[in-house]
Nucleic acid binder design. Structure first.
Lengths: 291, 291
DNA sequence: GAATTTATCTGACTTAGGTCAGGCAAATGA
DNA sequence: TCATTTGCCTGACCTAAGTCAGATAAATTC
């Protein structure tokens, strides 16, 4: 009874609601309504178009308009016409606004770090949070095509290498493997896709092309907290679609038996096993798919 | 940067807020305000005294009064005078009210179980939730004196035995150990304390007395998700205080070196090591403390 | 038994949040 | 070019939520 999964879930929901409520309370301490504070924060986080703000905060256009007017009157926000569309407006923080935004950030950060600081195992706590955030945010996972040298891409790639290092009993040395050139992973030769969940990179995949009709899938990685949610399949489908739009006809990939989940995925999604097509020391399985 | 603990925490907060918001939205679908729904739910969960309701939901007495009147008019709630205090009132669900309450429960449970059902590792997800709920609910942990045969007590004791079974290489057999009689753990001879976090039992400790001035501390257990938060120390302090009010002058306990955290705790809180005082096969360390 | 405290109710009031219809001006498409 | 769509604003309006100052009656204290 006490172990009932649903009771455990609901206990969790209750405790988090209380925590979030307390955060809202402390936001109120700055003498502004929660709505106005949310708008200020969204602008501070780089959401400048009014349409974008409205969509993100799910606000009625009238309501947003009024909240912005309020913030403008306080001297926190500057509104200007969009250079692209004279009907649209753009919101920016003034210097005072940036200061106020920083104050809200401090409140959030203080709560977060004090909770983490007084916990005996902050890393375990964070891992638990990642797991839950990925599970809850399943429907909000978005994929973006990125330069493989971008911050989030590099983060994914490093996690990928670290994972291989753990899986191969002999470790993994990037320099021994055929590390793809960044330009081969960027259109028009190829592409690099990164999956984000609420702004955090949780997976990636690369299409490495050479301008010809044959390209390779490289660097498929899914964050541990997001495994089992079908993200790998989704990323692979998107990579194949992107490859097609780049004019690629055949995709190949190499992999290793220390990655059985990956091999299972390829077998179940139309890939056929082929002979070795490179002399990279790490892989022992090779696949091909005609698009 | 992407690995910044604070960003991870805030991503977590965002995703949970969205989930909780969605739950509230679906509550609204039953044509009642969130406030009224909260009151109905609290009554359904056994909170009958108005004062208790007010404290739990942090509602103004006027507001609660009005929400109750609304629920009463809908025929969901029956209000009656308290038999103990003619000023106080007691709220109960009518049959219709119980049906409505069940509908809200179903909404919550459906969300919970659908999330758990579509996750590849529901047990890991639940463990993560327990960990977070314990961390967030630190300030809301309450200790109650319970009959050791109560549901939550039995849950704790079973978890305790299972834990010992894992720690002892030879396993643990309750029948070989001196399992205390329930009556020795109930006032006036002794006491059994259970710590609850948002209704879930997360720790226990027993004072086993025999009517004389010497008693024993038994069955100190803390749920894995709540370890390191200082709960053991707190439970021990409360057990010692309770022992004192029961007229006990000296406390003893036995323990084993497979439980090093416990031994460290006893050493650091005024217990002195003494000679073996029983012939239980499991313990190898014995402590005493004069109150 | 009088004074005080406690538990709740009532009515007046405020505020945040949100909806809706209509309006204006720029952009778009036939 | 003209009708339509889009992006935003304005003012009127509504509701849930919450606060506050008494009022009432039972319980407690002196």
């Amino acid at each position: 009874m006490t172990h009932d999964p649903i009771l455990r879930f609901r206990r969790f929901a209750r405790s988090v609601t209380t925590e979030v409520g307390a955060l809202d309370e402390s936001f109120l301490g700055r003498g502004r309504s929660l709505g106005a504070a949310r708008v200020l924060n969204a602008i501070g986080h780089g959401r400048t178009d009014l349409a974008e703000l409205r969509a993100y905060l799910t606000l009625d256009s009238g309501l947003l308009s009024r909240l912005l007017r309020q913030l403008e009157a306080e001297g926190l926000v500057r509104l200007s016409q969009s250079p692209l569309d004279a009907r649209a407006r753009i919101a920016e923080l003034t210097e005072t606004g940036a200061g106020e935004f920083a104050a809200y950030e401090d409140i959030s950060n203080d709560r977060a770090s004090s909770l983490l600081a007084r916990h005996p195992k902050p890393e375990a706590l964070l891992a638990a949070m990642d797991l839950i955030a990925s599970a809850l945010g399943q429907d909000r996972i978005v994929t973006e095509e990125r330069d493989p040298r971008d911050d989030p891409s590099v983060f994914c790639l490093n996690e990928y290498y670290a994972e291989l290092g753990r899986r191969f009993s002999t470790g993994f040395d990037v320099n021994l493997s055929c590390d793809p050139q960044a330009t081969d992973l960027i259109a028009p030769r190829g592409a690099f896709l990164v999956a984000f969940s609420d702004g955090m990179p949780i997976g990636c995949v690369g299409v490495k092309g050479n301008g010809g009709p044959i390209a390779e899938i490289k660097r498929l990685w899914i964050a541990p907290s997001a495994r089992g949610l079908g993200l790998a399949k989704r990323l692979m489908t998107q990579a194949e679609e992107r490859a097609q739009t780049l004019g690629i006809q055949t995709l190949r990939l190499d992999t290793n038996s220390v990655l059985p989940e990956a091999i299972r995925l390829y077998r179940s999604t139309g890939w056929t096993e082929i002979d070795r097509f490179n002399d990279d020391p790490y892989p022992d399985h090779f696949f091909e798919k005609t698009l």
